[in-house]
């Protein structure tokens, strides 16, 4: 197990290093970094200051060293729109995105598993077919379009929920969260649902396939032959066998939720790090883009690492084969 952890940590570090190098190449080696990292309005003096700070007058390998050194110290440049360190700017927006992603995950699992079970247990019923058709739409339709339709239906036509913003927040441990106020919840619901739809479609498919497979197993027959109630057979014997693959896949998909939050946050004007990225792109605030990129890579790698380690801890077969 220890060997496995060490090897896995090594792989993660390698991925981050590779990505950092790619970012460095894109910013420093290909283009003119002053163009990219200095504000378009900067005067000669400012440009000289940036050139000195980034060591642009020195050879490329020294620049690379400086870039890595700064990155390791959390210095990925300064936003010229907000005039704040880019990393700090992103960290401020991180909790909102994280809350959105977590709520979406809860919705995806909470709605997706029951629907998937239903479709798996009654595959030929009208309801079963409808659930599957819905999940195909959830898969194939562009996320932003689904969001738009949610806004049109729930905000414009029905007027039940607000179309954008984050709403009222409360501080917990110094972090603003919105799921504890009614207003915040109302603002959170539509974007979270939007972000959840794709994963929900995925959960439905996985659960349905799992249920159909598990229902044919002898142990389900045996459980029924023992005289267990339908609720116990499905709720314990079937569900527990389905959950393992569903949880694994969802864990791996958590990272992509943070990426897809870019779209959802734009549709709902939700002040998370995804919206920040889009705003920064349109305002050419490049240090923020670079910082976002690096931080997302780190988040991705950490999530994948944690999921793999948890999986290895749960499933003895993985542990044995990898060791």
């Amino acid at each position: 197990m220890l060997v496995y952890i060490i090897r896995r940590l090594g792989q993660s570090a390698l991925v981050i290093a590779v990505m950092a190098t790619l970012v460095f190449v894109a910013v420093y080696a290909v283009g003119n970094p002053v163009d990219i990292l200095a504000s378009p309005q900067a005067d000669q003096q400012e440009i000289e200051a940036i050139t000195r700070r980034l060591g642009l007058d020195r050879p490329l390998y020294e620049q690379y060293g400086l870039f890595v050194w700064n990155a390791l110290h959390g210095d990925l440049g300064r936003s010229f729109v907000y005039n704040e360190p880019a990393v700090q700017l992103i960290l401020k927006r991180l909790p909102a995105t994280f809350e959105l992603a977590m709520t979406a995950l809860v919705i995806a699992v909470g709605v997706g598993i029951p629907l998937g079970l239903y479709a798996g247990l009654k595959p030929n019923s009208l309801g079963g077919h409808s659930v599957m058709a819905g999940s195909i739409l959830g898969f194939s339709l562009p996320n932003f379009w689904q969001g738009l339709m949610l806004v049109l239906l729930f905000s414009v036509v029905l007027g039940w929920l607000p179309a954008g913003g984050r709403g009222q927040t409360v501080e917990i441990l110094g972090l603003p969260v919105s799921f504890l106020t009614v207003d915040g919840l109302q603002h959170l619901l539509l974007p979270a649902l939007n972000l959840a739809l794709y994963k929900m479609a995925l959960v439905i498919r996985l659960t349905r396939a799992g249920a159909r497979e598990v229902m044919l197993q002898d142990y389900v027959r045996f459980a029924r032959a023992k005289g267990l109630s339908q609720a116990r057979v499905i709720g314990v014997h079937v569900l527990k066998n389905i959950l393992i693959p569903v949880v694994t896949v969802l864990g791996l998909e958590l990272g992509s939720m943070i990426a897809f939050a870019v779209v959802t946050e734009t549709v709902f004007a939700y002040p998370g790090m995804g919206k920040l990225l889009i705003d920064s792109i349109s305002r050419l605030d490049r240090p923020v883009i670079v910082a976002y990129l690096m931080m997302t890579v780190v988040i991705f790698v950490v999530i994948n690492l944690v999921v793999d380690l948890i999986y290895a801890a749960i499933d003895p077969r993985v542990r044995l084969s990898e060791a």
């Binding site: 991925v15 590779v18 894109a26 283009g31 990272g255 992509s256 990426a259 897809f260 870019v262 779209v263 990225l277 792109i281 490049r286 883009i289 990129l293 997302t296 890579v297 991705f300 994948n304």
Partner: peptide
């Protein structure tokens, strides 16, 4: 594998930003 571990939307977004 490395490329597929990052969502397409994110990679495309960053490329177009550049």
């Amino acid at each position: 594998d490395l490329q597929l571990s990052f969502p397409a939307i994110l990679v495309a977004l960053v490329l177009l930003a550049v």
